[in-house]
Each structure stands twice: as C-alpha cells, then as structure tokens.
C-alpha cells in the first residue's frame, strides 16, 4: 500500500476541560474517499479543523505526505508553528465548511480567485481564467458575476468547493457540506463531490448523508465520544457492523 497522504496519530483536543478528542488515529491514502459519521459532539468536526490547521492540537501529530505539519520540534520540545508558517502549510489542504463561508463582498469568480491572487501570487488574468474553468467544473460558470447573496445555498457550496479546489490541494476536507442546505439542494452538491471523487481526489467527508457514504466512500468511520469506534468498507460497515455502538447509531439514522 502507498504511504498515507494525510495522517493523524494520538490526536488530543480539549475545550475548557472537556476532552473532545481522546487520542484519535486516522489516515487517508491518495485517491481515497473516507466518510466520517457520528453523533454531534463526537469530535469529528474538531478532527477536521485540527487537520486543516485551523486550531492547534493539544497533543499528537498531523502528517501530510509523511511530513509533520502544524508543529515543529525546538530544543527537544514540540511547539506550534506561528500563524504565517501555518498559512503556507494550509495551501495543500482544501477545506469546505458547513455554512459555506463565501466572502459576501466578492462575486463568485472573485471568491475563487482570491486564493490564487493573494496566496499563490498568480496574475489577475490567469487567476480569472483558472477560476472560470473551476466554476465550469462545478457547473456555475454562468453565475460567475453573481454575489453570494444572489446564489442559492447549493450554488454557494459549489462555489466554495471550487474556491478550495482551484488551489490544487493534496486532500479536500468537507465539514458537513450539506447540513445547512434545504433538502432539494443537497443533491447538486453531492453530485459535484461524487464527480470529484471519481476524478481521483483524496477526500475526507464528515457527513450525515448515509447514502452518500455508502455509495461514494471507500471506507466509513464512526466517531463517538472522541474516539474512532469502527472503520470499515461501506458494505461491511452498513450491513455487518462489528460494534454495538455502530449498530445503535445506524438504527437511528436509517
């Protein structure tokens, strides 16, 4: 098997004395799609934020292509990198948020361009071309001049996917990408993600969409109480779960 692209080990995180992650081990290989399920408050979204380097871990390590990110060892002690160094490392990890978080003061095209022009220092003209191409891939090139307030939730989330994708990340993290959407808009976003998976993108998807997980994911993970309870291929996970907690969780969502 190839080396994992993104790997966390013994990941710990507490908020105000409340331990949310209790030593999580998780990895994703190139081209793999991993779905992460679990009740709310189980720590699955926290793991994504830590992997995206948006928050510092309390303990454990995160490795991208085998190299430790987020922290460094100085004088024998592990220390968090400063924000500027983290910013550089974040470019290789794409993040899609539950509430889209598009920039309301920029139209769809400029939302996609901003990372290219400000982070990768690509010329305005080339950035526009690449942004338009990416908007085409999510089926929204005809909405390029529209501002987020003029787009539906599903369209906003597709622009957000294009915004992360245009920077050519090694891995894409999705934090409940369809949870804030009206039911009739969920399909268009899942469709984009499914095509992305088929194109070979490495993806970690925290989701409540059991059908999407069973159809698209290579592996399904159940989070509960800050630890990983079960991890298996979809058929195995849904039809023949090994753990009682998985069975209980599935009985609630089915």
């Amino acid at each position: 098997m190839t080396q994992p692209i993104l790997q966390v080990s013994n990941l710990h995180k507490s908020y105000a004395g409340n331990e949310v992650l209790k030593g999580v081990e998780f990895e994703v290989r190139k081209g793999q799609v991993k779905a992460v399920l679990g009740p709310s408050g189980s720590g699955k979204s926290t793991m994504l934020r830590l992997m995206a380097l948006l928050e510092p871990a309390d303990g454990g390590s995160i490795r991208l292509r085998g190299e430790t990110i987020g922290t460094t060892v100085r004088n024998g002690r592990t220390v968090h990198l400063p924000e500027r160094a983290l910013a550089r490392q974040r470019q290789d990890i794409g993040m899609v948020f539950q509430r889209f978080n598009l920039f309301p003061h920029l139209d769809a095209c400029r939302n996609v361009m901003l990372g290219l022009t400000s982070v990768q220092r690509i010329s305005h003209r080339e950035a526009r071309e690449r942004a338009m191409e990416m908007l085409g891939r999510v089926g929204l090139d005809h909405r390029a001049g529209h501002y987020p307030s003029e787009l539906s939730g599903g369209q906003q989330q597709r622009v957000a996917i294009a915004r992360a994708l245009v920077l050519n990340p090694d891995v894409m993290l999705f934090d409940e990408p369809t949870s804030a959407l009206d039911p009739e808009l969920v399909g268009e976003v899942l469709e984009v993600m499914e095509k992305l998976a088929a194109d070979g993108m490495t993806m970690i998807v925290v989701t409540h969409e059991v059908r999407f997980a069973s159809r698209v994911a290579d592996e399904v993970t159940l989070f509960d109480g800050g630890v990983i309870v079960e991890q298996a291929a979809p058929e195995e996970f849904f039809n023949n779960p090994r753990h009682e907690r998985t069975r209980k969780f599935l009985s609630h969502v089915h």
């Binding site: 924000e83 910013a87 794409g94 920039f103 982070v119 957000a160």
Partner: peptide, 12 residues
C-alpha cells in the same frame, strides 16, 4: 467563519 475561510485558503 470569514477569517476561518481565509485562513483555510492559506492567507496570512
């Protein structure tokens, strides 16, 4: 979520 999204893109 705005600064979070900006930081996720790798902005300083």
């Amino acid at each position: 979520g705005q600064s979070l999204a900006g930081r996720a893109l790798g902005m300083s």
